[in-house]
Amino acid sequence: VCIVQKKDTKKMFAMKYMNKTACIKKDAIKNVLKEQEILQTLEHPFLVNLWFTFQDEEDMFMVVDLLLGGDLRYHIQQEVKFDSNLVRLYICELALALDYLKCFSILH
């Protein structure tokens, strides 16, 4: 994953790239395409949103929201102490995101 900027809007994104040959060797093509299909149907403030996809001869690319500062798992692994109000907020955000996924019959 790398940080990219859209030229016309100057907006920053994260770009995930996957080597096609490596995906074939790992038998992961089906999973990558399913991930893309799922992300294309979703749009939610508490989920990473997919904005663009493209490919070249060697790689497949997915451009998604840029989330600087890491995800919740990263902070938990860093043993960050959260106050109870922040924990309540995160639980509510997670519940809303999971409820949204449930509407699409998506299990996480």
Rank of each mutant, 00 (worst) to 15 (best):
L33R: 12
Q55C: 08
F13G: 02
I91R: 09
A22W: 00
T41D: 03
A97H: 04
I91V: 15
C23G: 00
M12Q: 15
K10R: 15
N85F: 08
D99G: 14
Q55L: 07
F13D: 00
G69A: 13
C2A: 06
V63R: 07
E79P: 02
A97W: 03
D65R: 04
K6R: 15
L42Y: 08
H108F: 14
L72Q: 04
I106S: 05
V4C: 10
Y100W: 05
I24D: 02
A14V: 13
D83P: 09
D71Y: 05
E43H: 15
V1L: 02
K7I: 10
I24E: 03
L89G: 01
S105W: 02
K25R: 11
F104L: 03
Y74C: 03
A22D: 12
L107F: 02
L94P: 00
M15E: 13
F82N: 06
V48Y: 05
C92S: 06
Q77P: 01
K30P: 03
M15A: 08
N49I: 03
Q5N: 02
K25L: 10
K6S: 10
R88W: 14
Q77E: 14
Y74R: 10
K11Y: 03
K6F: 09
F82L: 10
E35W: 02
K16V: 04
L39A: 09
D27V: 03
E37M: 07
D56Y: 12
G70Q: 06
D71H: 07
A97V: 10
L33V: 05
Y90R: 11
H75N: 11
Q36S: 00
D59P: 01
E58H: 14
E57P: 00
M15V: 03
Y100C: 14
K26Q: 13
F54M: 07
Q5L: 08
F61G: 05
M18K: 04
F61P: 02
I24F: 00
K16M: 03
K34V: 13
Q40W: 01
L39C: 10
T9A: 06
L98P: 01
Y74A: 09
D71S: 06
F61A: 03
Q77C: 07
K26C: 05
V63H: 01
T41G: 00
I24M: 01
L39Q: 09
P45S: 08
E43C: 11
L50T: 01
